[in-house]
């Protein structure tokens, strides 16, 4: 496993049969994990990565090398960026090599439907000439857990998207049969997809249906209610781009952490990770895009090539 990790750092191609081994070892580990993983402090919480492998290297430089530091990744490892395969394989390899130093939970992009449309599937086809690597990875996706609790009572509830009106207690999450494709309805779907909101006149509303027709947006009251019922003090989630890398809401009862700098190679945003120490203090560490990611950047800072558009 060490040599695989080293090869990924060197940007080398990982043969299909090695991918199969990594996936199978990872599944064996993940299948034993509860839907809510209990993680001791100190731990560093990371948001969306989206295939930006070189920025993941910067993340480890920022937060401290793995396995020296403990890490929790909140999902969305794949899609959008150009190195989804390598990013996911590196995280899986680290998980297999250091099971109690690396924790992974599922994001909405860790699904067949989404990763087929947003880049991961196409990347697998391009790099392997067939879809079997994508299929193997999707099998692993189905085994990823749905959330985490850092530090026990008074701790931090971690999830990719947010809350669900169908979930009042963490025990209800523990009962979900998670080993399936992310469904279009039900609590599992909400946990991976929902968003908090405190802006645009979102006054005195607990849960609002999204203008899109499906999906909930939640305000402060459901967050407070969740903390009271579950004896937690913070919800750490990812899922939405935040320009400064992290964004606290509802007087610090919820935070969005985003770990893909210069997202999609053109947003110019910073990224951050959140370290929770033994006294439950929060330390945000902000980092910028790697030179490699900047190299892929288009549009900003230079004149584009003329086009005869009509």
């Amino acid at each position: 496993m060490d040599s695989v990790i080293e090869r990924l750092h060197q940007g080398e191609h990982i043969p299909e049969r090695v991918v199969a081994q990594i996936c199978s070892l990872a599944e064996e580990l993940l299948v034993e994990e509860s839907n809510i993983q209990l993680i001791p402090t100190p731990v560093t919480v990371c948001g969306d990565i989206h295939g930006q492998l070189h920025d993941l290297f910067t993340l480890f430089e920022t937060g401290g090398a793995c396995p020296d530091e403990r890490y929790l990744f909140l999902g969305d490892f794949v899609d959008r960026g150009f190195f989804s395969v390598e990013t996911f394989l590196l995280l899986l390899s680290l998980k297999v090599r250091y099971p109690d130093r690396v924790y992974l939970i599922r994001g909405n992009h860790e699904s067949r439907q989404i990763s087929a449309s947003y880049g991961f599937y196409d990347e697998c086809l391009r790099k392997y000439g067939n879809a079997s690597v994508w299929r193997m990875c999707c099998e692993v996706f189905d085994h990823l857990s749905l959330g985490a609790l850092i530090g026990g009572p008074g701790g931090v509830f971690c999830v990719h998207g947010g809350l669900s009106p169908e979930i009042r207690t963490m025990d209800e999450i523990r009962k979900i049969d998670r080993k399936q494709e992310v469904p279009h309805e039900g609590p599992m779907c909400d946990l991976l997809w929902s968003d908090p909101e405190d802006g645009y006149a979102f006054d005195s509303v607990d849960w609002s249906l999204s203008s899109r027709g499906a999906g909930f947006i939640f305000g402060e009251a459901p967050v407070k209610e969740f903390h009271q019922r579950n004896n937690t003090t913070l919800i750490a989630r990812a899922h939405q781009l935040v320009v400064q890398g992290y964004h606290e809401m509802f007087d610090g009862q919820l935070v969005t952490v985003w770990s893909a700098p210069n997202y999609c190679y053109r947003c110019g945003n910073d990224a951050a990770v959140l370290t929770i120490d033994d006294d439950m203090n929060r330390e945000y560490k902000v980092f910028e895009a790697s030179d490699h990611t900047k190299m892929h950047a288009t549009g900003q800072g230079r004149a584009p090539l003329p086009q005869y558009f009509l």
Partner: peptide, 27 residues
């Protein structure tokens, strides 16, 4: 999605004091 939320609400009613939700109303 809406049908499943309505079904859940009919099976597990919102208790007094709990935050309420309405799948037919967009704020």
């Amino acid at each position: 999605w809406k049908a499943s939320k309505k079904k859940f609400k009919s099976e597990v009613p919102v208790e007094p004091g709990q935050t309420d939700y309405d799948v037919d109303h967009v704020h």
